[in-house]
Design a protein around this nucleic acid. Structure first.
Lengths: 195, 195
DNA sequence: GGTGTTCTGTACCGGACGGTAAATATATCG
DNA sequence: CGATATATTTACCGTCCGGTACAGAACACC
């Protein structure tokens, strides 16, 4: 066991609570009192354990990707491009309308537009979105070489199309759309899938 | 002419400059110094002419709807549902990737997630998004009765689908997608349109 | 040319922001 | 039992926030 006074709170639980707050209020809209109250720790403890507000948000982002948004990686492992697309869309609907979550997508509305101080977080979120789209494009490329995606289809176009819908779903959920409504959007979107 | 000292600036031009700032930084991310500097007026003049930050933002929203986003109303006047959808999608692409604009859509990322102080603005934006979708649904309903939209099509589903894509386009543009890329997204999306 | 009215400029308000110094409490190690 | 190391607590820092009081400047009216 480590020397010194042991930590009086569970960092994992604290991170989970911070995630919920950032998810609901975005990066800029979340204040340190918001965080310390939700995490039930005081400010110096937060700084000692997580660095600062920005570092905490990045840790929260990783947790988000490994937890609520883990469906993305799972979707990429589906056997066919069509099923990848289906799973991505329906997984997104589940995520953004899950009543146990704050609603919407942390990665989309965490810092879409923001002041100068949050620009670095904004860029980080953009980078993650771009990276996710790239992974999807590569998956569709592979599908093409494997023959389950038509030779005339464009992996880049399809990846961008699916990504666009997923992001649109996040905005819709933030505007109050229901799970059922968004499932129908996903279904409609899939009608555009190449034969 | 009105009595008293005349205003030393053009309110229309000032509003236009405020629009650009809010568009780029969102409601919360925009500070009063950001505004007064861009508008080239001092703070008491801003308050005398526009009320306060929130009232200014609402005026900016109206200007946005009547200016850059006026394509929405025009789109609704297209003769067929299919052409309404086309015009809406391509108009959105033009708007969110117009190099003369800040990029993205003010109504989408103005206040998607925010702190307690901005909740009233967030609700206002949600209300406007919902209203716009309702107008589109009614237009598709009309199209159905006029016969240019298949009897089996769902106006509600289609309206939500198109709205979702438009909002996704805004996020894509904020992530750096090019006009050409998003035009291809719009084209792909239209493949889902009912025969 | 005074007078009333409105706008501009400066300087300021209380409060909230993100972040930290310093003292105290609680553990392990010798 | 010290001695050492880490965590918590309280209290505070400078800065920026949105909003405004007040005095002076520029016009219309009589």
């Amino acid at each position: 066991m480590a020397v010194g006074r042991p930590r009086g709170f569970d960092t994992d639980q604290a991170l989970e609570r911070a995630l919920k707050v950032f998810w609901r209020k975005g990066y800029e809209g979340t204040t340190l009192p918001d965080l310390t109250e939700a995490m039930d720790i005081n400010r110096p403890s937060l700084y000692a354990a997580f660095g600062n507000k920005e570092a905490l948000f990045r840790k929260v982002l990783d947790r988000y990707a490994d937890g609520p948004a883990a469906y993305v990686r799972e979707a990429l492992e589906e056997p066919t491009a069509r099923r990848v697309a289906e799973r991505l869309l329906l997984g997104a609907v589940d995520l953004v309308t899950n009543p146990r979550h704050p609603g919407g997508c942390l990665a989309v509305h965490g810092a879409l537009a923001c002041g100068d101080e949050a620009q670095s977080i904004r860029r980080e979120l953009i980078a993650r979105r771009v990276k996710r789209e790239a992974a999807l494009r590569q998956r569709f490329q592979r599908a093409k070489s494997e023959g389950d995606l038509s030779a005339s289809a464009s992996p880049a176009d399809l990846a961008r199309y699916i990504t666009t819908i997923v992001q649109g779903l996040a905005v819709q959920a933030a505007s109050g759309a229901s799970r059922n409504e968004l499932q129908r959007v996903a279904k409609t979107a899939l009608r555009a899938w190449p034969k």
